[in-house]
Amino acid sequence: MDILGNLPQVLFSGLAAGSVYALVALAMVIIYRTTEVLNFAQGDMAMMSTYVGLGLLVAGGLPFFWAMLGALAFAAALGAFSEFAFLRRAKEPTVLGLIIITLGIEMIVFGFASWKWGGDPRDLPTPLSPADVVVIGGVIMSYLELATIAISATTISALFLFLNRSKAGLAMRATQQNRAVARLMGIRVRRVEMGAWALAAVIGGIAGLLVGPATTVEPYMMWDPMMKGFAAAVLGGMTSLAGAALGGAIIGIIENLFGFYVSTAFKSVVPFAAILLMLAIKPSGLLARHYVKKV
């Protein structure tokens, strides 16, 4: 095996995979740092948005760009609706209770999507064929992977600016830190929470639309990216946007390095071993500030 020669290729592949994980991680972080909910429905909400995009594209006959935009609009609506219809209705919820509610939402979304579109995998046609590649320095890069990395990087930067520089982003942070005080300060806490869910669903939807063309569209398509995204979010510290992005990239790369150089059989569990090691050193994640608990 050509060990060094393949290294750039493996790193590039890892980065392409990691940029999708980073998007899912960001989606989870946005919801977690606004409402302290671990959203297990994230992946399946993205799956359903991808199906909607596919429907608009194939059955609706819309041009590619508009179909994808339509899918993201649907994602926003689905996220906002989930918050409004289910989470907001919970009376004095516990953290565990909220997790189970998102699990319930996951099942409802999954059931609905599989009922509407069936279990057979489908193809999401894109203007880019998987065989369109460019070779730079011996590394084969497909346009699809390059687009994935570019879209992901753009989304992350835009999000970063939005959440750190805009009033809405500030309101989200205030809501997480102290809901009651945020409300007293005139922040419409509920609207902020609903907005966070909509935003997260859109970010997840983008991930779904990037996973779809590279793999296939089927009800379980987001199960693996979602788990890796969750892992990436934890690795990055659960509340840090930059941490989530970094975590996604790290997990994608570690996974590919291990898969190529060691074994593909245990590829999917290696990120968790990495997280265990990292958390043993820094229990609050890579980039999150370590908070001191008050008693």
């Binding site: 592949s13 793999t215 693996d224 590829k267 999917s268």
Partner: peptide, 13 residues
């Protein structure tokens, strides 16, 4: 593995 969706390292191998 059944859950894997990123097969790049497999195919590289």
């Amino acid at each position: 593995n059944q859950a894997d969706r990123d097969l790049k390292s497999h195919l590289l191998k």
